[in-house]
Amino acid sequence: MLKIKSLCVSYGAVEALANVSVHVSEGEFVSLIGSNGAGKTTLLNSIMGIVPSAQGEAIFMDKSISSMKIHQAAAKGIALVPEGRRVFSNMTVLENVLMGGFSKSSKENSEKLEEIYSMFPVLKERKNQLAGMLSGGEQQMLAIGRALMCRPRLLLMDEPSMGLAPLVIKDVYEKLAALSKTGLTILLVEQNAAMALKYADRGYVLENGRIVLQGSAKELLGDNEVKRAYLGKEYKEKWER
């Protein structure tokens, strides 16, 4: 469904992504893990058309999306839940959700709204509150709800666990897993490798703008290098020995 071929992205002299190739098939839940500054956000932003790519190609549903503007990528059926949620803080929860369905008819939106309310009851309870007043977890739910309003075929998630308490993180991932079960294709990027790989089918490891490892989520969770660098197991094991 999504094919990224040898993508290179630079910010001036800083090369953020070098020859990154990633693919996501229809219905898959793919996680890409990497530490801070590895280039995860850059990858998603480049797919979405927020940052331009220097080289390489992004193909979505057999069409090149490399030179698309943000709203055009959205119209193609790609939704991004950005890093730090970026809800419209001066607008109400309901207005935020409706904004996600900007290009859809109001009839389509009212149907979808009910679905989103039943998936995230908290959004219904808080619908008239300003989004800026919500807790981090609620804002994350709102950002996901907003993204779902445009009925995406591919959902891009940027660090959904950032700044959230463990129980809330689990909650968010359970929702994502449920969405994945309904057939939604998900590409998620995370520092929190344990959670990201636990729920995913497949995974990639990104280091300094390069893909260094890929495989099924199980393989990656069992990989010694991943354990050492991302799951923090090394010292514990030594101590256990």
Binding site: G49, H71, G100, A147
Partner: peptide
Amino acid sequence: TAAGICGIN
């Protein structure tokens, strides 16, 4: 940016 993500030009 978030507005663009929502499909707003």
